[in-house]
Design a protein around this nucleic acid. Sequence first.
DNA 1: CTTATTGCAAATGGTTTGCAATTTT
DNA 2: AAAATTGCAAACCATTTGCAATAAG
Lengths: 155, 155
Amino acid sequence: MSIVDGTDSAGDRDALHDEVCLRLEAQGRRFTSNHRLVIDVLADAGQPLTIPQILPRTPGVPQSSVYRTLTVLEEAGAVSRLVVGSNHAHFELSEHLGRHHHHLVCRSCGTVTDIDFTPETEAIIESALADVAGRRRFRVDEHQIDAIGFCADCA
Amino acid sequence: MSIVDGTDSAGDRDALHDEVCLRLEAQGRRFTSNHRLVIDVLADAGQPLTIPQILPRTPGVPQSSVYRTLTVLEEAGAVSRLVVGSNHAHFELSEHLGRHHHHLVCRSCGTVTDIDFTPETEAIIESALADVAGRRRFRVDEHQIDAIGFCADCA
DNA sequence: CTTATTGCAAATGGTTTGCAATTTT
DNA sequence: AAAATTGCAAACCATTTGCAATAAG
């Protein structure tokens, strides 16, 4: 189902690159070295990163290019932009490439961590959402759940 | 339990003002006419508003004062700042004053609408969160669920 | 009277953009 | 060659802030 299944083998990484490339080409974009570099940074991190966190891992690439790359990747559905609390947007591999998950957001340090629910819990949430949204004729594409509090370090 | 229970009678509004006043005074702040004005705008709207939506409803009050008022009210726990997708933050009465709820966010027009889950669904979500977060020694204060998609108007 | 709040204007800072040079196909 | 991407610097724009005047307790 998912391109990146967590084991992170070399083959997975190639499959990830291929999938991103396909998505870019579907929109008439190109898969350049900057694109690959940013994808790899996000894949390696395994959790949402802010621009200040990404920049040091893309040495020599100007800030504006990283922003542009992230925008292109977002439009191609390869990356998601997350805005929760903090002043900086967080970026992560899209759920199209990874797997569905939710977030723990630390009030103090702003760090965002991925968490998973069981399929049963997800099913309950989805059906509750479909029910409530349907009543207002709202079509739900996706949902995001953020738990806000304090991480172990900031407790 | 909640100060504002949806019927929106004059008494509820007074109770709302009193509660906001208490919360402000607990922090050595004052309950001024600007504070009341902004609270009333948010209470009347009954859904999250952006600054561009708030300003026309607070005639004569400069933008910077509205921002400052919202910050003070947020610190007092009377207002919550919501950041989802759009370029503008959305503001609403805090769950301390209203009731716990979640959001439908329209990808197209950016409008945010409140929705409620049943207590049973909420209980399941809370226990799932407590479980997963506890395993990482993360202390959950609150959670927010945003369903992203297209509203009836933008379908 | 003491201290928080207000209003104005100016600054801040994350993010976006114009344009010429450079890659990619 | 044609078109997307890059890098640099400059522009944007939502939000914040300094400061003198004002209002609340």
